Simulated scan of single mutants.
Amino acid sequence: MSHDDRDHTLEALTEHSREGRLLIDEYGDRVTALDGARTRPDLLALFDDLPEPRPRFTEAPQATAPGATVAVPPEPGGALPEPHRPPPTARRHHTNASPASASRSAP
């Protein structure tokens, strides 16, 4: 949902208030609900009992907010995709003997 979606919704609510379809208290309640809305259906629900105008959404909503996680649908056949794992890094082989102890044990 974009800022434009909220702006269009507020404009439509304001128009209903100007036309006398919403009392000032009803308008205030819906503006408060607008602030808490998270999806376009939440915005449209503010107009369930009102005629046109309703907000017009002209572009597709963003799928996710930056940094949000996305659910991945199962692959065909019902299997979940393998999670991405970084390639393994080369590991050093450590020995129990330190270089100093190795030199002391030499004849």
Results as ranks from 00 to 15, higher is better:
Gly28Asn: 12
Glu19Arg: 08
Ile24Gln: 11
Ser98Asn: 11
Gly78Leu: 06
Leu44Met: 00
Ile24Leu: 14
Ala45Leu: 01
Arg38Cys: 02
Leu23Ala: 12
His3Lys: 09
Asp4Ser: 09
Glu82Asp: 15
Pro53Leu: 01
Leu10His: 11
Ala60Asn: 10
Ser103Ala: 14
Pro55Gln: 06
Gly67Tyr: 04
Arg85Ser: 15
Arg18Cys: 04
Ala63Leu: 14
Pro88Leu: 14
His3Tyr: 09
His8Trp: 05
Asp7Asn: 03
Glu52Leu: 09
Phe47Glu: 02
Gly78His: 05
Arg92Asp: 15
Thr9His: 00
Pro99Tyr: 06
Pro87Lys: 04
Ala60Ile: 08
Ala65Glu: 14
Leu50Met: 07
Pro66Gln: 11
Pro74Ser: 10
Pro66Leu: 09
Arg21Val: 04
Ala45Phe: 01
Pro99Glu: 15
Ser105Arg: 14
His93Trp: 12
Thr69Asn: 09
Ser105Trp: 07
Ala106Cys: 06
Ala63Glu: 14
Leu13Met: 07
Ser17Thr: 05
Arg21Leu: 14
Met1Asn: 05
Ala45Gln: 00
Asp35His: 10
Pro86Leu: 14
Glu59Cys: 03
Asp5Ile: 02
Pro99Phe: 08
Ala12Phe: 01
Arg40Glu: 00
Thr64Met: 14
Arg6Glu: 10
Ala90Asn: 11
Pro107Trp: 11
Val70Tyr: 11
Leu13Ile: 04
Pro76Trp: 05
Asp4Ala: 12
Leu13Ala: 07
Asp42Thr: 03
Ser2Pro: 05
Asp29Gly: 05
Ala65Val: 06
Asn96Leu: 12
Pro73Met: 02
Arg85Asp: 13
Ser105Asn: 10
Leu34Trp: 02
Asn96Arg: 13
Gly36Lys: 11
Arg92Lys: 15
Asp29Ile: 06
Pro51Asp: 09
Pro55His: 04
Glu19Ile: 02
Leu43Thr: 01
Gly20Asp: 10
Pro107Leu: 10
Ala65Lys: 11
Glu52Asn: 08
Pro55Arg: 00
Leu44Trp: 04
Arg85Met: 12
Ser105Pro: 04
Arg21Asp: 08
Arg40Ser: 08
Gln62Glu: 12
Pro81Phe: 09
Arg54Pro: 03
Leu22Val: 00
Gly67Asn: 06
Met1Ile: 03
Val31Glu: 14
Pro107Arg: 13
Gly78Ile: 01
His84Lys: 11
Gly67Arg: 02
Phe47Met: 03
Asp7Pro: 03
Pro53Ala: 05
Asp25His: 03
Val72Cys: 13
Arg54His: 09
Thr32Met: 08
Leu46Tyr: 00
Glu59Lys: 07
Pro41Ala: 10
Pro86Arg: 15
Ala63Arg: 13
Met1Asp: 03
Leu23Ser: 12
Arg92Thr: 13
Asp7Gly: 04
Pro61Lys: 03
Arg30Thr: 03
His16Arg: 02
Arg104Gln: 10
Val70Arg: 12
Ala68Trp: 06
Arg85Trp: 09
Glu75Met: 15
His8Lys: 10
Asp48Ser: 10
Arg104Ile: 02
Glu82Tyr: 04
Ala37Tyr: 00
Asp4Cys: 00
Thr64Asn: 14
Gln62Ala: 13
Leu80Asn: 13
Thr39Asp: 07
Leu50Cys: 06
Ala63Thr: 11
Ala60Asp: 11
Arg85Thr: 13
Thr95Lys: 15
